[in-house]
Lab assay of single mutants.
Amino acid sequence: MTEYKLVVVGAGGVGKSALTIQLIQNHFVDEYDPTIEDSYRKQVVIDGETCLLDILDTAGQEEYSAMRDQYMRTGEGFLCVFAINNTKSFEDIHHYREQIKRVKDSEDVPMVLVGNKCDLPSRTVDTKQAQDLARSYGIPFIETSAKTRQGVDDAFYTLVREIRKHKEKMSKDGKKKKKKSKTKCVIM
């Protein structure tokens, strides 16, 4: 069974824990209790493949930012979460993405942009803004509501699919490099 290491990042209060708990335990946590770091595991079937999701729910508070490099190193894919009623959390996505790329030393890291709290009427981040940002990053965008469960499975499952595509691409690139290195030079 394939294991996928997913990391949920975003500013404090955007609903990272609520999304994760909704996926794992099928219930909505409405009281806000700032996370330092929590880890969850769940076995699911995605596109006919049974897999184990190892999900790291991270601290959004700035005082825990020193811990970010460590979990970013171990993560295979990242859910970059903002709240649709919090423009600052949307603007912060850029910083999370840049930090992930720096730590992973790669421009090509599996990510999904997630606009959470889409059940709320007080939207300050337009869907088109988020779609445009995701398009500019070359990553999928999904709106979710941890409260109603809308888009929750889709967000995590899409990230797994992005990781699969990335692994497939990397193995193809690896095979191309191996083929090239088999060419021999004969000096007579």
Rank of each mutant, 00 (worst) to 15 (best):
S145Q: 04
K169P: 07
E168R: 07
M188D: 15
D173V: 03
G151W: 11
A155L: 11
D126F: 06
S145C: 13
D126C: 08
Y157I: 14
E162F: 01
K178E: 14
L159F: 00
D132A: 08
D126T: 06
V160G: 02
I139V: 06
K176L: 12
V152R: 06
K128T: 13
I142W: 02
G138E: 05
S136H: 14
I139G: 02
T158D: 04
K184R: 07
D154P: 03
E162I: 03
K184G: 10
D154Y: 06
K128M: 10
F141A: 01
S136K: 12
Q129A: 13
D132S: 06
T127Q: 08
K175R: 07
K179V: 13
E168S: 04
M170S: 12
D126W: 04
I142A: 01
A130H: 06
T144G: 05
V186Y: 09
M170A: 08
V125K: 01
G151V: 11
Q150L: 10
T127Y: 12
K169D: 10
K165F: 02
V160L: 05
V186R: 03
I187Q: 15
R164Y: 02
S136P: 02
S136I: 09
M170N: 07
S145Y: 07
K172Q: 14
A134Q: 02
L159S: 00
F156A: 02
R164S: 08
G151I: 11
K178A: 12
E162N: 07
L133A: 05
Y137L: 15
R149Y: 14
K178M: 09
D154N: 10
C185A: 13
G138S: 02
A134C: 07
Q150V: 06
L159H: 00
F156V: 13
L159E: 00
K128F: 09
V125T: 01
Q129M: 13
K182W: 01
D132K: 08
K128R: 10
Q131D: 09
K175W: 05
V125S: 01
D126Y: 06
G138A: 05
R161F: 00
K165W: 01
P140V: 01
R135Y: 11
D154Q: 12
T158G: 05
K182G: 11
R135I: 08
G151K: 13
G138V: 01
R135L: 08
I187V: 14
K178P: 09
I187C: 15
S136Y: 06
T127C: 12
D126P: 04
Q129I: 11
D153K: 12
Y137S: 05
K180V: 10
D153R: 11
D154M: 08
Q129P: 05
A130T: 08
R149F: 13
D173A: 05
K182L: 06
K169G: 11
K176G: 12
D154A: 09
K177W: 09
K169V: 09
A155K: 00
D154K: 10
L133F: 09
K169T: 09
A130G: 07
E168W: 02
V160D: 00
V125N: 01
K176C: 12
R164D: 09
Y157W: 10
V152F: 14
D126I: 04
T148S: 13
S181Y: 04
K175P: 08
A155H: 01
C185R: 15
R135E: 13
L133S: 04
Y157S: 14
T183S: 06
H166M: 14
S171M: 09
V152H: 10
A155N: 00
V152L: 14
I139F: 04
M170Y: 13
V152N: 10
E162D: 04
S136A: 10
T183E: 15
R164M: 10
G151Y: 09
A130L: 15
G174Y: 00
G138C: 01
D126E: 08
T148Y: 13
V152P: 05
K167Q: 08
V160E: 02
Y137E: 06
V125H: 01
Y157M: 13
K177Q: 10
D153A: 13
Q131G: 07
T144V: 12
K175M: 08
I139L: 05
Q131Y: 08
S181R: 05
K169F: 10
G151H: 13
K165T: 12
A130N: 03
T158I: 03
A130K: 02
L159M: 04
E143G: 03
A155R: 00
A134S: 06
Y137I: 14
F141N: 03
A130E: 07
D173T: 08
C185V: 02
T158C: 09
K167N: 12
S145E: 12
F156G: 00
I187Y: 13
L133Y: 10
L133E: 05
H166Y: 11
K128C: 10
D132I: 05
M188V: 03
D153E: 13
K167Y: 03
V186H: 13
V125F: 01
S181I: 03
F156Y: 06
D153H: 12
K177F: 06
D126L: 05
D154L: 08
V125I: 02
K182Y: 07
E162A: 06
R164C: 08
D132M: 05
Q131S: 11
Q131M: 09
Y137M: 14
F156R: 00
V186M: 02
K172V: 12
K177C: 11
L159D: 00
R164N: 15
R161M: 02
A155S: 03
I139N: 02
F156N: 00
T183N: 14
S145N: 14
E162V: 01
K165E: 06
M170W: 09
K172I: 15
D153C: 12
G138H: 02
K172R: 06
D173L: 08
H166N: 12
A134D: 02
S136V: 10
D154V: 05
K180S: 12
D132H: 04
D126V: 05
A146I: 00
Q150R: 10
K167D: 05
D153W: 06
Y157T: 13
I142Q: 03
V152I: 13
Q129H: 08
G151T: 12
E162W: 02
K169C: 13
K184A: 12
I139S: 03
K184F: 00
S181W: 01
Q129D: 14
S145R: 05
V125C: 01
M170V: 15
T183F: 01
G174W: 00
D173I: 01
A155V: 12
H166W: 10
K165D: 03
S136R: 05
G151Q: 13
I187L: 14
S145V: 05
D126R: 03
M188S: 15
H166V: 07
G174E: 13
I142Y: 05
S171I: 05
E168D: 08
K179W: 03
C185M: 14
D173Q: 06
D132P: 01
D154C: 06
K172D: 13
R164E: 14
K176R: 09
R164I: 14
K128I: 11
K177Y: 04
K172F: 10
F141T: 02
S181H: 09
S181A: 10
C185L: 04
K147G: 15
V186G: 15
K182S: 09
